[in-house]
Nucleic acid binder design. Structure first.
Length: 512
RNA sequence: GGGCCCAUAGCUCAGUGGCAGAGCGGGAGACUUUUAAUCUCUGCGUCGCAGGUUCGAUCCCUGCUGGGCCCA
C-alpha cells in the first residue's frame, strides 16, 4: 500500500504515541460507566446552565473527532457519536489538562476516535461543551476523511464546503460517506424504521414471517433472468431466486394461512438508477383474502409505515421526484381500462386481440411499431400504462383489473376471461407494488405456464415448476397476495431518485 | 443496447497547444472561550489508461476504462 504524505505523517504520529507509552488502538474504553450520548450531554449542559448554584455535572463522551481548533494553550474539539455532536473544551491548567496531555490532544486528527470526561458547561458563546480533565485515544485514523466544513449563516442556514459529493466515491467508499454525511446515516435509519413498521403491522395482522430458499432448483414467480450457480457435491445447477411467490404459496397450501417474507431477490439484468442486481422485497399471501381485501390491507400497512417512519414534522408527507406525496390520504382506486381510456382515448375492450389493439395504438401514434410487433395483447396495454398513465399517478393510486396474458399467477375475472383480479400500486409516478387474487386452479395454472412459454420472446421463458403444480393439485385455498419493493418504498419515503442512495453498498463495476 | 456529458492535488474545483493552479485539508511557528478560528511561513500531482497529430499534448483526434444524465 502506497501511503500519501498525510498518511506517512500519521504513521509517524503512531510511532510518537507508542514511544510515549500510548496504545493508539486500545482494546477497550475506560470511561464506559460514565458515558453519555453527545446530544443528551448537550441538553444536560444547557439545563445545568439554568441553575448555576448546582454542583457541576460530569460526563464522559466517546466518539469521532470531526472538528478541531487549537489556540495556544486552549483547544476546542467537536466529537460526534450516534446521537449528534458536542464540543470538548481543553486548556492547560489545573481545571483541565496537564501540558503533556494537552500537547498530545492538540496533535489529534479529524477522524480519530477518543473518549473524554469532564464537566458539562457552556462556553462564552453559549455552546454546550465538556470541559475535559481526562481523555484517551481510542483509535487513530491514518487516511483523511473528506469532512465538510460547515459555516452557519446569519439567517441560521448552514453552508457546507468541500463535502464528499462524487457519487461513485460515495458508493464505493460508503464508510467514508456515512462518516462525513450525517444525512446519509439518516436514510438508513429511515429504511430500518420502514421495515420494522412493516413487520409490526403484518405480525399484528396474524401473518407469520417465514424464510424460503434463496438457492432454487427451478426459478419462477416473475419474468426475469436469474443468476446461476452450482452445487458441487450434488453436481446440480441452482438459481438465485427472482421471487418468493411460488414457495410462499406452497406454505399457504400447507395450512399456514398468512405468511410473509422480507428478503433479497436477485435478477441478472441491467444495473441503473432504478435497478440493483439484488434488491429487497416484501411478499405476503393470505388465505381467504382477494385482491380487494389486499388493497385495504396494503393501504393500511403503508399508512402505518408512514406514521412510524416519517419524522413528525413531515405531517405524513414526503417529496419524491418533485412531487409531494400525501401518504395518509385515502388511496385512489382506478380501473385500468378507465385509466387508459382517459389518458389515451383507447378503450382496449373494443380491441380484444393483439393485432387490432396494436394497429389502433400505432394508428393513433401512441406507440412505435416495434413496441407492438409480435407483442402479446397485455404487453401492449402494459406499454400504454408505462407511457401514458404511470407518470401521472402521483397520489397513491391502485390501478386494477389487468390483462390475463401478462399475469400468469392471477385469477381470471368470472365475467371476463381476458382480465384478471390484479392491481398495481403507484406513487409519485412510479410503480410500488403488485397484487392479485391468486390463481389456485392447478389445471389453469399449468395452462398459463404453457402459454407463457409459448409467448415468451426468447430467453424470458421460465422453466415450469412441476413441484409447485403438485402443491396446487393437492389443494390450495383461495388467497390474496402482494409483492412490494422495499428499496423503492424507501426512495419514496426519503425522497431519493436513485436506488443507490437507499442501498448501503450498491453494485458497481469492479474498480481498475 | 443508443445519445450526451464528466474524469486535473487527500477533498471541492479552476485552467492553458509552451515551467501545473486556488480554497480547504497537511507540515512548521504564534495564540488560554473558538466554532469554515485567526495570523506568518511551507509542501503537495502518473492532469483516468493506451495510441495518434505536433518541434512540443493535461489541452486537439481515436480507442479503452470508470462514472453521471437521458432514451430503449
Amino acid at each position: 500500500m502506497e501511503l500519501n504524505e498525510v498518511e506517512r505523517e500519521r504513521v509517524r504520529k503512531l510511532a510518537t504515541l507508542r514511544a510515549a507509552g500510548i496504545d493508539p488502538y486500545p482494546p477497550r474504553t475506560e470511561f464506559a460507566a460514565e458515558r453519555r450520548m453527545a446530544a443528551d450531554a448537550a441538553q444536560a449542559a444547557l439545563a445545568h446552565a439554568q441553575t448555576p448554584e448546582a454542583p457541576p455535572t460530569t460526563a464522559a463522551i466517546m466518539g469521532r473527532i470531526v472538528g478541531k481548533r487549537v489556540m495556544g494553550k486552549a483547544a476546542f474539539v467537536h466529537v460526534e457519536d450516534g446521537s449528534g455532536r458536542i464540543q470538548l473544551f481543553a486548556r492547560v491548567g489545573e481545571d483541565s489538562l496537564t501540558k503533556d496531555s494537552f500537547d498530545i490532544l492538540k496533535d489529534l486528527d479529524l477522524g480519530d476516535f477518543v473518549e473524554a470526561r469532564g464537566e458539562l458547561m457552556l462556553t462564552k458563546t453559549g455552546e454546550p461543551s465538556l470541559k475535559i480533565n481526562d481523555w484517551r485515544l481510542l483509535s487513530k485514523a491514518i487516511s483523511q476523511l473528506p469532512f465538510a466544513k460547515e459555516e452557519k449563516q446569519p439567517d441560521g442556514s448552514v453552508v457546507r464546503y468541500s463535502a464528499m459529493s462524487d457519487p461513485e466515491t460515495r458508493y464505493r467508499q460508503r464508510y467514508a460517506d456515512l462518516a462525513v454525511n450525517p444525512e446519509v446515516r439518516e436514510i438508513f435509519r429511515t429504511r430500518a424504521r420502514i421495515i420494522k413498521a412493516m413487520r409490526e403491522f403484518l405480525d399484528d395482522h396474524d401473518f407469520l414471517e417465514v424464510e424460503t430458499p434463496i438457492l432454487q432448483p427451478v426459478y419462477g414467480g416473475a419474468a426475469a433472468r436469474p443468476f446461476v450457480t452450482h452445487h458441487n457435491q450434488l453436481d446440480q445447477d441452482l438459481y438465485l431466486r427472482i421471487a418468493f411467490e411460488l414457495y410462499l404459496k406452497r406454505v399457504v397450501a400447507g395450512g399456514i394461512e398468512r405468511v410473509y417474507e422480507i428478503g433479497r431477490d436477485f435478477r441478472n439484468e441491467g444495473v441503473s438508477f432504478k435497478h440493483n442486481p439484488e434488491f429487497t422485497m416484501l411478499e405476503f399471501y393470505a388465505a381467504y383474502m382477494d385482491m380487494y381485501s389486499v388493497m385495504d390491507l396494503i393501504e393500511a400497512m403503508i399508512q402505518h409505515i408512514a406514521r412510524r417512519a416519517l419524522p413528525p414534522e413531515a405531517n405524513g408527507a414526503s417529496v419524491f421526484r418533485g412531487h409531494t406525496i400525501h401518504w395518509l390520504r385515502p388511496f385512489r382506486r382506478w380501473k385500468l381500462r378507465d385509466a387508459i381510456l382517459e389518458k389515451t382515448g383507447v378503450d382496449y375492450a373494443l380491441f380484444p386481440d393483439a393485432a387490432s389493439l396494436g394497429a389502433e395504438a400505432v394508428a393513433r401514434r401512441l406507440l412505435p411499431t416495434d413496441a407492438v410487433k409480435d407483442k402479446p395483447w397485455g404487453k401492449i396495454i402494459d406499454s400504454l400504462i408505462g407511457d401514458y398513465v404511470e407518470k401521472d399517478l402521483v397520489d397513491p393510486t391502485f390501478l386494477y383489473e389487468y390483462p390475463r396474458d401478462i399475469s400468469p399467477f392471477a385469477k381470471s375475472r368470472p365475467d371476463d376471461p381476458n382480465t384478471v383480479e390484479r392491481f398495481e400500486g403507484f406513487i409519485g409516478g412510479a410503480e410500488l407494488c403488485n397484487a392479485f387474487s391468486e390463481l389456485n386452479d392447478p389445471l389453469d395454472q399449468e395452462q398459463r405456464f404453457l402459454d407463457e412459454s409459448a409467448n415468451a420472446d426468447g430467453d424470458e421463458a421460465n422453466p415450469i415448476d412441476e413441484d409447485f403444480l403438485r402443491a396446487m393439485r393437492l389443494g390450495m385455498p383461495p388467497m390474496g397476495g402482494l409483492g412490494m419493493g422495499i428499496d423503492r418504498l424507501t426512495m419514496m419515503f426519503t425522497g431519493k431518485d436513485t436506488i443507490r442512495e437507499v442501498i448501503l453498498f450498491p453494485h458497481l463495476r469492479r474498480e481498475e
